[in-house]
Amino acid sequence: MARPFTPKVLTANHLLDGDVVYLAPGSRLTRKLSEAMLIEDESTAKALLEAAEARSSVLVGPYLADAIRDSDGRPRSTHIRETLRADGPSIDIL
């Protein structure tokens, strides 16, 4: 049985610097997960992913990542990998 759709954010790496980016409202790109658009239905998610795949001069490897809405209404990751992508390395850099 197909798994029920859960909310997503659309994310990719930026072509020029590899930065993690998210799709924000109005087709804008943001580097902050908290500003990303939380996509709550499957057909929109699919359409946005197709559109992102067509933006290959800016986006590398776009995909949909699970997210939830936190208490102040902003998207938050549900997986450690996405948390690290959003926040950067968890360690002090020399």
């Binding site: 790496n13 590899g18 930065d19 993690v20 990998r81 690290l84 992508r85 950067g88």
Partner: peptide, 8 residues
């Protein structure tokens, strides 16, 4: 040149 989590 790889593309990793946050950068190349």
């Amino acid at each position: 040149l790889y593309l990793q989590l946050h950068a190349y």
